[in-house]
Amino acid sequence: MTDKKFDLEDRLVDFAAAIVIFCKDLPSDMTGQYYGNQLLRSGGSSALNFGEAQGTNTKRDYINKASICLKELKESRVNLKILHKVEYGITSKRDNLLDEVEQLIRIIATIIKNKK
C-alpha cells in the first residue's frame, strides 16, 4: 500500500510539471514573461517545500514548511486568476490548473490544521 504523503508529494510534483508545460505556451511578451516566471517559481516551490516538510524532525518545523507550501500554492492560484482575467494561456490547461491548485490548497490547509 502506498503512503498518502508520497501520493501528495507526487501530486505536487505533477502540479509543478503542469505549470512548466503551461508556461511554455504563454506569450513571450512582458506580461507573459512576468507572470510566467512568477508562476514557475511559486508552483515549483510548493512541491519543493512539501518535500522538505517530510524530512523535518519536529512538528513545528513540519508546520512551518507546510505553511510555506500553502503560501506558494495561494500565490499560484492568484497568478492563475490574473492570467484568466487577461485571457493568457491555453484555457483548458489554465482551468485544470486552477481546479488542481484549489484542491491542493484545501488538502495542505487541512494537514496543517490537523498537525496543530
Rank of each mutant, 00 (worst) to 15 (best):
M1R: 12
T2P: 11
D3L: 14
D3M: 12
D3N: 15
K4I: 13
K4T: 11
K5H: 14
K5M: 09
K5G: 07
D7G: 03
D7V: 15
D7E: 15
R11M: 14
L12C: 11
V13S: 08
V13P: 08
V13D: 07
F15A: 03
A16S: 14
A16P: 00
A16T: 00
A17F: 15
F22W: 09
K24A: 13
D25C: 03
L26K: 09
P27W: 08
S28H: 15
G32P: 03
Q33L: 13
Q33W: 07
Y34N: 06
Y34A: 13
Y34Q: 11
Y35S: 03
G36Q: 02
N37H: 09
Q38K: 03
L40V: 00
S42E: 08
S42M: 09
G43W: 04
G43T: 04
S46Q: 06
S46V: 08
S46A: 15
N49R: 00
N49Q: 11
G51F: 07
G51P: 02
G51R: 07
E52S: 05
A53Y: 06
A53D: 07
T56R: 15
N57D: 14
K59Q: 10
D61F: 02
I63S: 03
N64G: 04
N64D: 06
N64H: 14
A66T: 00
A66F: 03
I68R: 05
I68W: 02
C69V: 03
C69T: 14
C69G: 05
L70W: 03
E72F: 06
E72Y: 00
L73H: 00
L73N: 08
K74D: 05
E75W: 09
R77G: 00
V78M: 12
N79T: 04
L80P: 01
L80N: 05
L80A: 03
K81Q: 12
I82W: 01
L83Y: 00
H84W: 01
H84Y: 12
K85L: 12
K85Q: 13
E87A: 10
Y88M: 13
Y88P: 01
I90Q: 10
I90G: 05
I90T: 06
T91A: 11
S92F: 05
S92G: 04
S92M: 07
K93N: 06
K93M: 13
K93R: 11
D95V: 09
N96M: 14
N96I: 11
E100I: 08
E102W: 02
E102G: 05
E102L: 10
Q103E: 15
Q103C: 00
Q103Y: 11
I105T: 09
I108M: 02
A109P: 01
I112F: 06
N114S: 14
N114K: 15
K115L: 12
